[in-house]
Design a protein around this nucleic acid. Structure first.
Length: 151
DNA sequence: CCTGAGCGA
């Protein structure tokens, strides 16, 4: 029939119509429609393994003793401290826990990260290396030589 | 202070 002939003609025309342009659109490597926006997940790994842990999400009522007690269940805690504001003395909501070994630190993260402490979900991860400069507890009022060299 | 992202005196 006329319809069938027309359909066959259209199909033939479509098959012969510029196959190179179509394939270049579908298989182009530069502009693929389903590629991620240039950055994978932009999720940088927290930090390199260390015995020092950074604990965030703490309740502001959580104290250093509570932090130590909670993390001691997973390893030998050498040092633990909740960071508090110097002026008001209130907790800043995060702290640090230092384990005796890397195994204990990993166990502490696995055991406490995402868990509850004093009603808040806390996050435990490896802490970044701190600025190697002890707090200047010695102030020289004379100001003769109070210059601090950092490296 | 207790409201909530973050890295310490």
């Amino acid at each position: 029939m006329a319809l069938r002939a027309a359909a066959k003609t259209a199909a033939t025309a479509a098959t012969a119509a510029s196959p190179r342009g179509l394939s270049s659109l579908l298989f182009s490597t530069s502009t693929f429609p389903f590629n991620l926006p240039q950055s994978q997940t932009e999720k940088p790994p927290p930090a390199e393994p260390s015995t020092n842990l950074f604990v965030s999400g703490l309740s502001k009522r959580t104290t250093t003793e509570g932090l130590r007690t909670a993390f001691e269940k997973f390893g030998q805690v050498v040092d633990a401290k909740v960071v508090t504001d110097r002026a008001s003395g209130f907790s800043k909501g995060f702290g640090f826990v230092r384990y005796a070994s890397l195994e204990d630190a990993a166990a502490g993260i696995e055991g406490m990260d995402g868990k509850f402490l004093d009603g808040w979900v806390i996050f435990a991860e490896y802490a970044r290396p701190r600025n190697t400069l002890p707090p200047p507890q010695n102030s020289f009022p004379r100001g003769v030589n109070n210059t601090r060299f950092q490296s």
